[in-house]
Design a protein around this nucleic acid. Structure first.
Lengths: 226, 226
DNA sequence: TTCACTAAATGAATGACGTTCATTTAGAAT
DNA sequence: ATTCTAAATGAACGTCATTCATTTAGTGAA
């Protein structure tokens, strides 16, 4: 079945928009991964010439930013409004990691690009900040704590995609006896994925450590120490 | 000054080797960053045809793996042999982050590729594992703890390269009052880089939390609880 | 209404880049 | 000696992102 060829020139109704591009990009990523996300394939899936995309985005990076911000809307921050701080942070972090574990190429985008053009991302941060404030965190410390948690989440998202044999030392096993033994013993405990176990362990430690750190500081402040 | 053109055919002395390629790649990265690291530029810096590289590596990924493993040798693990566990982990983590903060494109390589062909990486893990064992960590938990720490380190390496205005909400400031206020207050405290503050805060928390978690578990085990 | 301007499409062209292949030459192994 | 393999050259390929001239349609000002 051949398609009618659309003539050149502005169409009566616009064929493209940021929203349409974002949606098509997400479908394409779902179907063929980030390797399949090319400007040509994206245009084709929208039944449009490749160059038409550049009337709506300045670069492929822009497309990635659109996708990133859309996905940020899927990160669940609801726990910050009805759960204690520790629980809320844990639920948020789990959701955050889950959303981006299948979108690793976005991590450099999130981590390095200003949030200015990412409204949903800003909304997410606002909810998280509110949760921290409600829990009594001093404003001065909140961003650093969020950044620390996010750093852990990004790294953990990579780890979700690590192959199971990533720590296989191969021929070097004799030269790394302690390490290789530890690798062999890993996961000898009940169930669950290795990546999940490491994430849960680290997240619990981080949350507990952050809480301890900030409460110590506040205690000191209250006591007038500095 | 024109170069003599080398004729085709195997030269009496090999012009290339893994070591030479690694060294040239590192120099090139230092001079022009990862954007400048192309197979063509790499070959040119070695005064060799591009295709000659493929007699020694199978792909550009291979080059990245060579560089990665070389850099792993720069990560300082010495503290594990003469410092208490908390100090050693902290020093190792700082060194690890510093080494890779200027090599972000390697992070997916480290995080996702088996260590099998990375001998220095294995050596690093062996030293870290020994440090954990000496501190009394149960073998079953060590790899998960290392993975958790590494995840945090990778994410923090990205953060080192984040622009200072990354959290600038721009026109959306009115819609994110708490977040924007927290961003404004960040770094109101003495000196230091924002990224460094977040890293120190998170690392301290993580180390403390991991220590607390494992000692609780060991205490329970000692007491015969399970 | 007309006219200039801008928005949004097409399709051709460009320029990087990674990678492959036929070919050549030299060392190594039988 | 002869054969096999290692290691080089240079040409060619295919994939991409991006740009540009061109076309057409809506929009706002005179």
């Amino acid at each position: 079945m051949r398609q009618l060829r659309r003539p050149a020139g502005r169409p009566p109704q616009p064929l493209l928009s940021s929203a349409r591009i974002t949606s098509a990009a997400l479908k394409l990523i779902g179907r063929s991964g980030y390797r399949g996300l090319t400007m040509a394939a994206l245009a084709k899936s929208l039944n449009v010439a490749t160059s038409a995309l550049y009337n709506h985005v300045n670069s492929k990076q822009d497309v990635l930013l659109l996708v990133e911000d859309h996905l940020m809307g899927r990160v669940d921050v609801s726990a910050f409004s009805n759960q204690p701080w520790e629980t809320a942070v844990s639920m948020w972090a789990h959701s955050y990691r889950q959303v981006f574990a299948s979108h690793l190429p976005l991590i450099p985008v999130i981590a390095l690009l200003p949030v200015t053009d990412a409204p949903r991302t800003i909304t997410m941060y606002e909810a998280v900040t509110q949760g921290f404030l409600t829990a009594g965190w001093p404003a001065e410390r909140i961003i650093d704590a969020i950044v620390a948690l996010e750093s852990f989440i990004y790294g953990s998202a990579y780890d979700v995609n690590a192959p199971t044999n990533i720590f296989d030392a191969g021929t070097q096993v004799p030269h790394s006896p302690n390490f290789s033994a530890a690798v062999a013993r890993r996961g000898n405990l009940a169930g669950a994925n290795n990546a999940d176990a490491a994430f849960d362990m680290g997240l619990k430690a981080l949350i507990q450590g952050l809480a301890a750190g900030v409460s110590a500081e506040m205690g000191a402040a209250t006591a007038g120490l500095h």
